[in-house]
Design a protein around this nucleic acid. Structure first.
Length: 506
RNA sequence: GGCGCUAUGGUGUAAUUGGUUAACACGCUGCCCUCUCAAGGCAGAGAGUACGGGUUCGAUCCCCGUUAGCGCUACCA
């Protein structure tokens, strides 16, 4: 019997990290142990389901790096893969269940049941339906149907224990008495989740059901349906819930939860995949947690999956992202960064010259970035040089009060006054000259230079910035970038007007 | 209310399934490096394993109870 697994999302919203993790574990299982993975869309909730979400979910799964063998987007021998187009299948099975007596029609109205629920609840027995409709004869049923009484189809639950195997929880045993007679088909003809899922899993020959543990309590219900249908049970594996920092189920309330959000933010798929796998699972003893998709597959072991719920920690996700960002192909980072800068209107058309320059920007600003969308915020300073404002900044003023600071700025200006000098190429010799002329070194040398050129007292390495300023100033950008000379002149002027530099000095 | 699941530093996990100074990663703190901020390197703080009982020479690990969190108890999935 080949392994057949499935990921069965409801198209009622974006793909959430919790569901994505379930998909990842299914995918890892298939990659590790062999078999096929299929996607099935569970859209029996007609009001909440939207087909656009189906597309988004598939797109996000692909982005994460997952693939599958059968699904609504690519067909397969067990289709259709959308529950809304399988209603005839459910109806046919329900009919035969009715014929064999494993199921029966129930005419109780929702209001009636709601009233009784309150009373039975007190007695502790979870039997929302009194099961009185069980005893109707075929004739009575036909009569009521003819009188157009709305009816649902319920499973006639047998008494006794219900047992099933769970790869993460071990053998599970429930008493069927706590299950009630679950509804298989609603009065409008649409099957319920529990019934549709079982019919599909059975017909699609699913061997392993890996899903969230919110379904654990539903499983005895489903096992009973398998029994009624006369089908063998799959092996289950109920994965723990993912929680927000407040230890409640992760949801939109916690902010960033959809894959879409992280992708937009500039989180690399390999980082997210790596992190998601580590939620409720860890590689053996002293193995590194940083694992490529191939390594993830190689060391994955479903039996090592943890039973307890895990808190989603975006800080750790960003740790992985920083790592993969540093490792990834520079052209990939440049593409993303360019897109972000364009979105901010800082870039216009991206030709090879611009790309090359963005490469420098990325290289300079990447260390310390959690995710690539921070590039626009970080790089913004390249455009926003304002000497007048800068000289009022507290940190900048502290630098300017360093002994010899004015002299350094002055000397640098002197060095740059030779128009023919290539600032980028000769940068180190320019610095050398400033050093010997001013008599300053180290902090007292570089800090004033940094401040005069950038208006800030911190940032990437100076020589990188110099290349970026000079290169940027040559490009046709929506907003011009000032070159070093312009910056210096402006800054020098601001110092003069504030009396931070003796006006007689040059 | 009933039923079920879970419980190791702030977070995610480890601990040859009863014998360890309870380990690793993220985060945090400090140091080194450095023109700065990051990055990187190094070091450190932080849990006696939810609580209470057993079983045992010995329990993170086995059993019972309690508590807390979560789930199911829908003509939601």
């Amino acid at each position: 019997m080949p392994n057949r697994l499935r990921f069965a999302p409801s198209p009622t919203g974006d793909l959430h990290v919790g569901n994505a993790r379930t998909a990842v574990f299914n995918w890892l299982f298939v990659k590790k142990y062999g078999g096929s993975l299929l996607i099935r869309i569970e859209d029996t909730d007609r009001v909440r389901s939207e087909s656009r979400f189906e597309d988004l979910i598939c797109r996000d799964l692909k982005w994460l790096g997952l693939d599958w063998h059968e699904g609504p987007d690519r067909g397969g021998p067990f289709g259709p893969y959308r529950q809304s187009s399988r209603t005839a299948i459910y109806a046919r099975r329900a009919e035969s269940l009715l014929e064999t007596g494993s199921a029966y029609r129930c005419f109780c109205s929702e209001e009636e049941l709601g009233r009784q629920a309150l009373e039975t609840r007190r007695s502790g027995v979870a039997r929302e339906c009194p099961r009185s409709c069980r005893k109707f004869s075929a004739r009575e049923v036909a009569q009521r149907l003819k009188d157009s009484h709305p009816a649902v189809i319920r499973l006639r639950v047998r008494s006794g224990k219900v047992v099933f195997q769970d790869l993460v929880h071990g053998e599970m045993t429930f008493d069927s008495a706590v299950v009630g007679d679950p509804i298989l088909v609603r009065s409008n003809g649409i099957p319920t989740y529990n019934y549709a899922a079982v019919v599909d899993d059975g017909l699609m020959k699913i061997s392993h059901v890996l899903r969230g543990d919110d379904h654990l309590s539903n499983t005895p219900r489903q096992v009973l349906i398998y029994e009624a249908l006369g089908w063998p049970l799959p092996v289950f594996a109920h994965l723990s819930t993912i929680l927000g920092p407040d230890r409640t189920r992760l949801s939109k309330r916690h902010g960033a939860t959809s894959l879409q959000h992280f992708r937009d933010q500039g989180v690399l798929p390999e980082a997210l995949l790596n992190y998601l796998t580590l939620l409720g699972w860890a590689p053996g003893e002293d193995q590194s947690e940083i694992l490529s998709p191939e390594e993830l597959v190689a060391s994955f072991d479903i039996e090592r999956v943890s039973k307890s719920s895990a808190v989603f920690d975006s800080q750790k996700l960003y740790f992985f992202n920083r790592h993969y960002l540093k490792e990834c192909d520079p052209s990939r980072a440049v593409d993303w960064a360019s897109a972000y800068l364009r979105r901010e209107g800082l870039l216009d058309k991206v030709d090879s010259g611009v790309r090359q320059w963005v490469g420098l920007v990325v290289e300079a600003f990447l260390p310390g970035m959690d995710h690539l969308s921070q590039i626009s915020q970080k790089a913004h300073q390249l455009w926003s040089f304002e000497a007048e404002k800068a000289v009022q900044d507290e940190g900048v003023r502290r630098v300017l009060s360093l002994p010899g600071a004015a002299r350094v700025v002055d000397e640098l200006r002197n060095q740059l006054s030779h128009e023919e000098r290539d600032v980028v190429r000769e940068w180190s010799s320019i610095v050398q000259s400033v050093k010997s002329a001013s008599g300053q070194k180290g902090r007292r040398l570089f800090h004033p230079i940094r401040v005069a050129l950038t208006g800030k007292d911190s940032g990437p390495e100076l020589d990188k910035l110099v290349s970026i300023f000079e290169g940027g100033s040559q490009l046709e950008l929506p907003h011009r970038i000032k070159d070093c000379r312009a910056r210096l002149n402006e800054f020098h002027g601001a110092m003069l007007s504030r009396g931070l530099i003796p006006s007689c000095s040059r």
